[in-house]
Simulated assay, not measured.
Amino acid sequence: MDWKTELSSRWAIAPVRSFSGGEIITAGFYHYKLRNRDTNDVCTIAFYGIGGGLSVVPAAYSENLRYYYKNLRSKRPTSFQDLNLRRAQLVIGSIQALSGQNASGFVLNILDGYSGYSKPLMVYKSISGSGDFGYEDSIGTPTAGIDIHDGLIHVKWDEVERGLPDHDDPIAPEWNDPVIPYEDPPAPPPRGKKKVRLEADVLFGFDRHDLRPEAISRLGAVAYEINKRTAPNVTIEGHADSTGRPGYNERLSRRRAEAVKNWFVSKGVYNAPRFSVVGKGEEEPVADNKTPAGRAQNRRVEITIE
């Protein structure tokens, strides 16, 4: 079967760039990377639309240099070819400061038809900001506004990434490289196991299991690594030092591991609802519990990615 028409219900999407202009009557384009989770092929898709809205300035442009994929499913099995020139609707609200820091929320609704009564084929919802799965670079003056667009999806066949084995951004060949006929790549070797250790004192306050704001950047890097995997198998372990009763330490370490999993689920990290959670308590120290430095090392969350 041709990769363009291969059907799937499992997809992942990531924003790339956006532009909107106008104040009452508005127009804009929004580019996304869309990944077929079954084949691991990636196409850039573009939404071009026109509609209405209110904004402080007449134009704004943003570009994301890192691709944070969010999992989504189509209502029925579909393909890249099915999405080309399909009608879509977009509602987006955004605010941008003079420093370039910004936040936005939007809903992209790809319809299964062209009438006003068409049901959605895919629905992508996102709330993001600078440093948290959001746009990294923004050009323009401070802005705030909301736009409602109706338009079409265009699949950019010249921006196709076939069967990515390990990363999202293959390196383009040099111009003097010889032209080699395309052949289907061999199946990628299985990924090795990766373990990430995060200090609990960075993630949580003393004797608490709610995440600190400082934890977001650390967990975001782990989420990015997980989303690069085609079929991630993740175990989250909470660990404690020997201060307090063993039963209490075990319950606290499990609640902390569950808080990390819930954050992954809230951010749409692929397969996050199936992540395993374990509370180890004080059973597996990595340092001496007799010293403050050793106890700090033992208070941790370990994330194993396979």
Rank of each mutant, 00 (worst) to 15 (best):
Y48A: 06
P178C: 11
K280G: 04
R197L: 09
S104G: 11
K193I: 14
E174C: 12
N64C: 09
V179D: 12
V123G: 06
F19R: 10
L219H: 07
N249Y: 05
I236D: 01
F47E: 05
S18Q: 03
F206Q: 05
A223W: 03
T39Y: 03
D168S: 06
S118G: 15
Y69A: 04
Y224M: 10
I180C: 09
L72R: 00
H149T: 05
L164R: 14
V155G: 00
V260F: 01
L164A: 10
K33R: 14
G134E: 02
D201S: 07
H149S: 10
A272K: 03
F264G: 00
A60L: 12
L111T: 10
G151Q: 12
E6Y: 08
L198H: 05
Y135I: 08
L98P: 05
V278N: 01
K194Y: 03
D147K: 11
S242N: 14
T230P: 04
V160G: 08
L164D: 03
D137Q: 05
V57I: 15
S20K: 02
V265T: 07
A296Q: 04
L90R: 04
T26Q: 06
A221T: 12
I305G: 09
E214M: 10
D177E: 15
A187V: 07
H31A: 00
A287D: 15
G28R: 02
P186Y: 11
I45G: 01
A200K: 00
Q96T: 14
L7V: 06
D2N: 15
A200W: 01
G145F: 01
T44R: 13
D2L: 07
A231W: 00
G140D: 01
D201Q: 11
K195I: 15
L85V: 11
I24D: 11
N36T: 08
G134C: 03
G49Y: 06
K290V: 07
N84D: 15
R10P: 05
S266T: 05
V160Y: 03
E258L: 04
K280I: 02
I180S: 10
N298Q: 10
K194F: 00
R10L: 07
R274C: 08
D2H: 14
G49A: 14
E214W: 08
S128C: 12
P58C: 10
D241M: 05
A27N: 08
Y61F: 15
H239T: 05
I305K: 02
L219D: 07
R299A: 02
G268Y: 05
L198A: 04
A296K: 12
V91F: 09
R274F: 03
A88F: 13
R86T: 14
K267H: 14
I148Q: 11
Y69N: 09
F133T: 07
S79W: 00
L98I: 09
